[in-house]
Design a protein around this nucleic acid. Structure first.
Length: 808
DNA sequence: GACCTGCTGCGGGCTG
C-alpha cells in the first residue's frame, strides 16, 4: 500500500504541505517543517520516511532505519504509538521502539542485540548510544532522522548536543535525510541552518494557521486594583467564575510557589472542587505529575494549576480553556500556551490573561498588539560552548574512537561550531587528554588517550562508565527529596528552604499542609499536618525577563495613550492610572525616555523607565550608578523591574545636569564598566558549576547515592579557584564569563537598548510623590530587605502616604 | 484594602 492509498482509505485529505515534505524527502532533501500541533505534521514526516523505505527495497531489511528525536520522555510513548498505527499496513516487517531513561533493562538488552526499524528517543539517549563502541555498526542502516519540537531544543545546549550527534550521523551517512519540526515561528531560516549545519534544505510551512483569541479578565474595580504585586489573588473570584462553566481549564502561573498558593486559595474558596482540581509543576514527583496528566487526558479534572511544566507534551488534551495568571513574559510562550486549548482542526485557540497588578493590564493590551503584528521572539543557538564539546569528545572516544583531524572537521559541520578555531579545538582535545595545565597529575582527568595509530580512545572502563552516567547538558537544581515518613514521594524542594526549618515546622507543598519530621540522607521526611499558617517553599528558578518584542509592544501602547487613544477593554481599564502617570510626569514611549526624581526623607529617588526587561535594567542601573559614582563618590541602592529601575541616594544629586553634561548611557567601555559595576566574578563562579558538570569535571555520584549540592558546589568552586590561580587561560573560565554576560546580563540586548536610548529624548520630571510607574519599584526595593509581613505594613503605609498627598 | 516571584527539560554502570 502507498501512503496516498492509506490516507484515501480513511477519507482523509492529504494537505499540500504533507505532499511537499514527502516529495522532498523522496528526492533525498532535508528540511524544516513549520506547522502547529495537531495539524498532521507527525504523519507528514513519518510517511516521508516510509515512502523512502518503500522506494528503496534494496536496503537492508533489519536494523535502525529511522531515528525520531523528541525533547521529552512524555512525548516518546505517544509518538511511538502514532507511528505504529499506519505501519502494520504499509511496512509489516518494520518495528517501532523507544529508548529513554525509562526504558527497562530487558528492553535495552533487546535493543543491544538489534535496534527496531524506527526508534523514538531523546538527544541524551542518542548520545549514550553513540558512546557504545559498536555505534557505527548499529547505525549502519540509518536513512532518515526526524527532530520533533526543534524550536524547544535549538536555543539551548541540548540542541547543541543534538547538532553534534547529527554531525556524527551525517559523517557516517552523507545522504542522511534530516527533517525538523517546529511549532513556533520566529526565524525559520536560522532554525533550519542550525539543524542542517548550514547545508541546503527546504522550509515547508504547514497550511493551517489557527485562529487565536486573546482576552483579559478585567478587575471589577480597576481604579482600586493593586499597583504592584505578582500573586494576583485579588482576581480569585473572577478566575473561579471563568473556570466554573467549562469542563476543563489549564491555569498557567509563573512560579511554582505561585501555583501552590493559587491551588490552596482556590480550594479554600471552593471546597467542593476537592479532587476536581490539581496541581502540576516541575518539583512535584513524577508519579504525581503522571497521574495529573493521565487524569487530564481522561477528562476527569476540572482545572489544573501549572507552571511551564505543561507547556509541552500531553498532546490531545481535552482542554477547553487556558488562563494565564500574570505576565507571560514572551509572545512565543503566550502562543504556545494558547495552543493548549482548541486542540482540534478548525477550533480556535483561546487564552485569557489574568493581570496581577495594574500595569499588567497594559501588558495584556501589548500582548494583543504583538500577536496581531506577529512580533514573535526568535531563538538563537549557543555559540560554540566548549563544555558541550569536551563532553562530546569523550563520547566519541568511547564510541569507537576518533582521529583528531577528522573529528575537528566533523565538529565544524555542526552549526554552533562552524567558527571553532584550531586553537580552541586543540585546547579542548588537550583538556580531555590530560586535564589541561592544572590537572595533569590526576589520572581521572586523562580521559582520552591516543594509541600508536593516533586513534583517541578512553583507556579505562571505569572512566567510560563514569562518563556515560554524566551525559547530558541539564544541570539539576539544588534540591532535596520530600517524602512521607510512611512512604511515598511528594517531590523536591531546595536544600536551603529545608535547612531554615526545624522539625515540627509546617509548610505547604504539593497542595498539602506538611510537617517536617526529620531530614535524613538528602530526604526530608514529613507527615500531614493541620492548621493554617504555613511557609510555602521558594524555588530559586530562572528569571525570565520580558522579551524585547513584548516590551516594544508596551511602548507602542503607551504611545497610543499619550495621544489619548485607549482602544480595547484593557486600555480602558488602565486609563485612569495612565492619565495619573501623565499628569504627574509623562508616559514613556519609543521616542521619549521618562526620568523622574523625587525627594523624600529617605533621600533622593531616581526613576528611569526604558521598558527593556529586568535583566537589561539591572545592567543599566548598575552601569549608571557606577558611572555617576565615578564623577562624585556616592552610594546607591538599586531596584529594578520589567519596566524600569530606581536609584536611591542618601543625598540629593543633580541628575538632569549630570545627564546633560555626560553621556551616562554611552556604550564605550561597556563590557569593562558592566564587569566592574556588577559582581561579575561571583556570577561567573555560579555559572561555572553548570559548565564543570557538563564538561565532566564534577561527578554527580552514583545513582541512589547522590552527592549533596553543597558538595557539588564546593567541588566546582574548587576547580574555579584552581583554574583561576594556575590556569588562567582555561577556556571554560572564559566561557563562564561569556555566559554570564550574554545570558544573565543579556549584553547584546543591553547594547541594543543603549542605542535605542540614544535616540530617545530625555524628559526629566521632579515629582511630589511616587508615580504609578515608580511605586512598584519602591515596593520592590523595600521587599528585598523585609519579610513579607513587615512588607505589607510598609506597603500600606506607603499607600496611605500617597493618598494623603493626593488629597481627598 | 492593597504581600507574597522567578520555568522547563535528560541521564546512569555492574552483575551469571
Amino acid at each position: 500500500m502507498t501512503p496516498q492509498a492509506w490516507f484515501k482509505q480513511r477519507g482523509w485529505t492529504i494537505f499540500p504541505f504533507q505532499k511537499a515534505v514527502w516529495k522532498a524527502a523522496l528526492q533525498g532533501r532535508s528540511g524544516l517543517l513549520h506547522a502547529t500541533t495537531g495539524s498532521g505534521k507527525t504523519y507528514a514526516v513519518w510517511f516521508a520516511a516510509l515512502a523512502r523505505a518503500i522506494k528503496q527495497p534494496a536496503k537492508p531489511k533489519r536494523g535502525l532505519r529511522v531515528l525520531w528525536l523528541t525533547p521529552m520522555r512524555a512525548l516518546a510513548a505517544d509518538t511511538a504509538r502514532a507511528l505504529q498505527e499506519p505501519l502494520a499496513e504499509l511496512l509489516p516487517d518494520w518495528t517501532v521502539g523507544m529508548r529513554t531513561g525509562d526504558t527497562s533493562a530487558a528492553e535495552r538488552a533487546r535493543q543491544t542485540r538489534s535496534l527496531p526499524s524506527a526508534l523514538v528517543t531523546t538527544p541524551e539517549s542518542l548520545c549514550l548510544m553513540l558512546s557504545q563502541a559498536n555505534a557505527a555498526e548499529r547505525f549502519a542502516a540509518l536513512d532518515m532522522v526526524i527532530v520533533d519540537e526543534w524550536h524547544e531544543l535549538m536555543g539551548n545546549k541540548r540542541g547543541v548536543q543534538a547538532q553534534l550527534a547529527l554531525a556524527r550521523l551525517r559523517q557516517w551517512h552523507p545522504d542522511l535525510v534530516v527533517w525538523g519540526l517546529s511549532a513556533t515561528p520566529g526565524d525559520l531560516t536560522e532554525a533550519r541552518d542550525t539543524l542542517l549545519g548550514g547545508a541546503d534544505g527546504e522550509i515547508v510551512e504547514g497550511a493551517l494557521r489557527k485562529e487565536l483569541v486573546i482576552d483579559t479578565l478585567i478587575p471589577v474595580n480597576p481604579s482600586r486594583f493593586a499597583w504592584s504585586g505578582h500573586l494576583g489573588l485579588q482576581m480569585l473570584q473572577p478566575v473561579i467564575d471563568a473556570i466554573e462553566p467549562h469542563s476543563s481549564t489549564l491555569i498557567f502561573t509563573n512560579t511554582r510557589s505561585q501555583a501552590e498558593l493559587w491551588y490552596q486559595n482556590l480550594l479554600e474558596a471552593r471546597p467542593d472542587w476537592a479532587g476536581l482540581i490539581a496541581l502540576h509543576h516541575g518539583s512535584l514527583d513524577r508519579e504525581v505529575r503522571d497521574w495529573v496528566e493521565q487524569s487530564l487526558k481522561l477528562g476527569t479534572l476540572k482545572a489544573v494549576i501549572c507552571t511551564s511544566s505543561l507547556d509541552l507534551g500531553v498532546d490531545f488534551l481535552p482542554v477547553e480553556r487556558v488562563l494565564q495568571i500574570g505576565s507571560a513574559k514572551g509572545i512565543a510562550r503566550l502562543l504556545q500556551r494558547a495552543g493548549r486549548s482548541g486542540h482540534a482542526p478548525g477550533r480556535p485557540s483561546r487564552i485569557t490573561l489574568v493581570p496581577t497588578n495594574s500595569l499588567e493590564l497594559l501588558e495584556a493590551a501589548g500582548a494583543k498588539r504583538a500577536v496581531a503584528n506577529r512580533q514573535i521572539e526568535t531563538r538563537h543557538a549557543p555559540n560554540k560552548p566548549l563544555d558541550v564539546l569536551v563532553q562530546h569528545l569523550v563520547t566519541m572516544a568511547l564510541g569507537g574512537g576518533f582521529m583528531a583531524d577528522a573529528l575537528f572537521d566533523e565538529v565544524r559541520t555542526a552549526w554552533s561550531y562552524r567558527t571553532l578555531t584550531r586553537a580552541e579545538w586543540d585546547w579542548a582535545l588537550a583538556f580531555v587528554t590530560h586535564g589541561g595545565q592544572s590537572l595533569t597529575v590526576y589520572p581521572e582527568y586523562r580521559r582520552v588517550q591516543a594509541d600508536a595509530l593516533g586513534i583517541h580512545r578512553v583507556p579505562d572502563l571505569a572512566l567510560g562508565r563514569r562518563h556515560r552516567m554524566g551525559i547530558g547538558t541539564i544541570v539539576a537544581d539544588a534540591s532535596i527529596q520530600v517524602s512521607f515518613i510512611s512512604g511515598g514521594r511528594i517531590g523536591t524542594v531546595e536544600e536551603s528552604f529545608i535547612s531554615r526549618m526545624t522539625p515540627g515546622d509546617h509548610f505547604l507543598f504539593g497542595g498539602r499542609l506538611l510537617e517536617l519530621v526529620r531530614v535524613h540522607d538528602m530526604t526530608a521526611l514529613v507527615k500531614r499536618a493541620s492548621g493554617k499558617k504555613a511557609a510555602v517553599p521558594r524555588w530559586n528558578g530562572g528569571k525570565l525577563p520580558l522579551s524585547s518584542e513584548y516590551a516594544h509592544a508596551l511602548l507602542d501602547c503607551l504611545q497610543d495613550a499619550s495621544e489619548q487613544r485607549y482602544d480595547g477593554p484593557e486600555m480602558q481599564a488602565i486609563r485612569p492610572l495612565l492619565e495619573l502617570q501623565q499628569r504627574s510626569s509623562a508616559l514613556p514611549t519609543r521616542q521619549r525616555l521618562v526620568i523622574e526624581t523625587h525627594l523624600c526623607k529617605e533621600g533622593q529617588h531616581l526613576f528611569v523607565y526604558p521598558f527593556a526587561g529586568r535583566s537589561v535594567h539591572a545592567g543599566l542601573a548598575a552601569l549608571l550608578a557606577y558611572r555617576a559614582a565615578a564623577m562624585s563618590p556616592m552610594t546607591f541602592s538599586i531596584s529594578v523591574n520589567e519596566y524600569g529601575f530606581e536609584l536611591l541616594s542618601a543625598e540629593a544629586f543633580d541628575w538632569p545636569a549630570l545627564m546633560r553634561r555626560v553621556d551616562l548611557f554611552s556604550d564605550t567601555d561597556l563590557i569593562a564598566d558592566v564587569l566592574a559595576s556588577l559582581n561579575a566574578g561571583e556570577l561567573a563562579q555560579r555559572r561555572f558549576r553548570e559548565i564543570a558538570r557538563i564538561a565532566g569535571l564534577v561527578f554527580q555520584g552514583y545513582p541512589g547515592q547522590p552527592k549533596s549540592t553543597r558538595q557539588l558546589q564546593a567541588s566546582s568552586s574548587l576547580f574555579f579557584e584552581v583554574f583561576r590561580k594556575h590556569d588562567a587561560g582555561n577556556l571554560l573560565l572564559l566561557q563562564a564569563q561569556q555566559e554570564v554576560l550574554e545570558q544573565e546580563l543579556e549584553l547584546s540586548r543591553l547594547q541594543a537598548t543603549l542605542v535605542e536610548l540614544r535616540d530617545r529624548e530625555l524628559s526629566f520630571y521632579q515629582t511630589e510623590r511616587a508615580t504609578p510607574l515608580g511605586f512598584p519599584l519602591m515596593v520592590e526595593r523595600v521587599r528585598e530587605r523585609l519579610s513579607s509581613e513587615k512588607l505589607s505594613d510598609r506597603v500600606a503605609r506607603m499607600i496611605a502616604q500617597l493618598e494623603k498627598a493626593a488629597g481627598p
